[in-house]
Simulated scan of single mutants.
Amino acid sequence: MIGLTRTTGERCCLDPAEIERVEAHPDTVVFLTDGAKYVVVETPDQVIGTVREYRAAVMVNAWRLIDTPDHRAEVTGAAVVPFPTRPKV
């Protein structure tokens, strides 16, 4: 979710995957795929930048999950050592 500020000063969070388009007339209007419209104080460039930062962070975190020793072993064909199990109580 990305945080934006409505013209009333209220903060709102939107799912970047649901943003269809962003227009300026003269206020910035964010159109969602479900037909909802949000008038925000951020410029279209700021909204686009926020969406880019969000998507970049998602990609970085995905690569961090993939770049674990166990996953690297699967990719290279090396032996994978199982995680230790907790003793039963």
Rank of each mutant, 00 (worst) to 15 (best):
F83Y: 14
D70H: 06
V60H: 12
I66W: 09
A36R: 07
I48K: 14
R52V: 04
R72D: 00
H25P: 09
E74L: 12
Y38F: 14
D70G: 06
P44C: 03
A17V: 00
R11P: 13
C12F: 14
V29G: 03
P44G: 02
I66V: 06
R64I: 09
E20I: 05
G35W: 11
T28N: 03
E10T: 13
V89Q: 15
K37L: 07
T43R: 13
G9T: 10
L65H: 13
G35Q: 03
P82Q: 00
W63N: 01
G49P: 10
N61R: 07
A78M: 04
I48P: 01
L14R: 01
M59C: 06
I2D: 15
M59T: 05
P82F: 01
V60K: 06
D67E: 12
D67K: 03
F31N: 01
M1A: 13
C13D: 13
Q46H: 05
D67V: 02
P44D: 04
V30P: 07
T85G: 08
A24R: 01
V22Q: 03
V89R: 11
A78P: 00
A78I: 00
T50Q: 13
R64C: 15
P16R: 00
V41C: 13
T43C: 08
V58H: 02
A79H: 08
T85S: 10
I48C: 11
F31L: 04
A62H: 10
A79D: 06
V51T: 02
A78Y: 05
T28W: 05
L4R: 00
P44R: 00
P44Y: 04
C13S: 13
V47A: 04
I48D: 14
F83S: 09
R55I: 04
L4Q: 02
E74D: 07
V81Y: 12
V47T: 01
P44N: 01
G3W: 08
G49H: 14
V39S: 10
